[in-house]
Design a protein around this nucleic acid. Structure first.
Lengths: 194, 194
DNA sequence: CTCGTTGGCCAACATTTGTTGACGAACACT
DNA sequence: AGTGTTCGTCAACAAATGTTGGCCAACGAG
């Protein structure tokens, strides 16, 4: 049990486990309830510790949120796949991303609820999606608009599927989502501007 | 005691103005803040009334929300336009709808925050969008999935544009939105299933 | 005018929220 | 051993929230 939480060779504090438990519980609660209804007390109860520990470790509820959802989309290098496959690649990547952990749902719920959450999503869009789109869209001037359209499509599907839970959206299989959404993203990325 | 609360030709109670003021303030607050942060006290203050009046008229906060956002999408009859124009028609209609009042933004914010809000959106989807899509998509079996994809695209754009406020999404003009999103909806509505 | 009904405000309630500080227990080091 | 630091709990705080009931002014029919 010599581990630091992340490889930066920390002194391996005894409380790292607790810290991780809090973060884990926080992510789940934020994803399930949104910012306001995810109370510090509930998160602390899930992590089986006292609410005051949350304050001591993360300063405030905002601090906890900031620490809980620092997110890396791990976007694939769109320059490395055939141009015509960019849309499907992106679609598949996002579905996988969304299925495998609830952090993106947390971001989405909190972004819709909370000003800070919305700003966080803007940062992710600007710092991660924009550069990726820039690799397949040659005209730099059109990159922001095209990326925004892609974001709209992807977030819209996540909204209907994981938050609003429209039954037909939930029922779609991964392959169906990719087959429908892939060409849309492809068009937003590479089709001549209409 | 002849009063109906909302009969179309009611006895014109003295309090109707107040009731309307409350509903107006409630819609604005729900749209701006979401369900939890839109407090009864703030709504009452906007309507220049005592918070207890809200309770008297609408019973509870849930009751107020239910009364405030009973929404009619006023979807156009998609059977009446040329089949190839269905997508653009739908896209334009939604942009207009969203621009002209904040109720849809309220629904979206509350749907992401509140269980009741999400169910309300499911009802709107089922009772209004599904029938409209049924008029352009011949195969009844595919209607729910296609409608869900349309909803995802439309709600996604609204999310990025009016809630998260991604700058490039905000910057798009009505015509650009229709030009980009119209063909997407058209494909979801009428293209052969991929 | 008189009196019941309606519209409105005020004060209070119980609960829940984020947040704080005091205090004890487990550990690390000499 | 002893001692200082880390980890954790308990109890309490002030503020805000939804909600309730009582009281007063204005109105309308007799």
């Amino acid at each position: 049990m010599t581990a630091g939480t992340h490889a930066t060779s920390g002194p391996a504090r005894r409380s790292d486990a607790t810290r991780a438990a809090i973060l884990h519980a926080a992510r789940e609660r934020f994803a399930a309830d949104g910012y306001e209804r995810a109370t510090i007390r509930a998160i602390a109860r899930d992590a089986r510790i006292d609410p005051s520990m949350v304050m001591r470790y993360f300063g405030s509820k905002d601090g906890l949120f900031a620490a809980a959802v620092s997110f890396d989309l791990r976007l694939p290098d769109l320059g490395a796949v055939p141009r015509e496959e960019a849309g499907r690649t992106l679609a598949g990547h996002f579905v996988d991303m969304w299925e495998e952990n609830g952090e993106l749902t947390a971001m989405l719920r909190v972004g819709a609820t909370n000003q800070g959450g919305a700003e966080r999503m803007q940062e992710i869009f600007r710092d991660q999606l924009l550069p990726a789109v820039r690799q397949v869209c040659p005209d730099p001037e059109q990159v922001p608009a095209r990326a925004a359209l892609c974001a709209a499509q992807v977030l819209g599907l996540a909204l209907t599927r994981y938050v609003l839970r429209f039954p037909p959206a939930v029922a779609l299989s991964r392959e169906e989502v990719v087959a429908w959404m892939g060409p849309t993203l492809q068009r937003y990325l590479t089709a001549p501007s209409p």
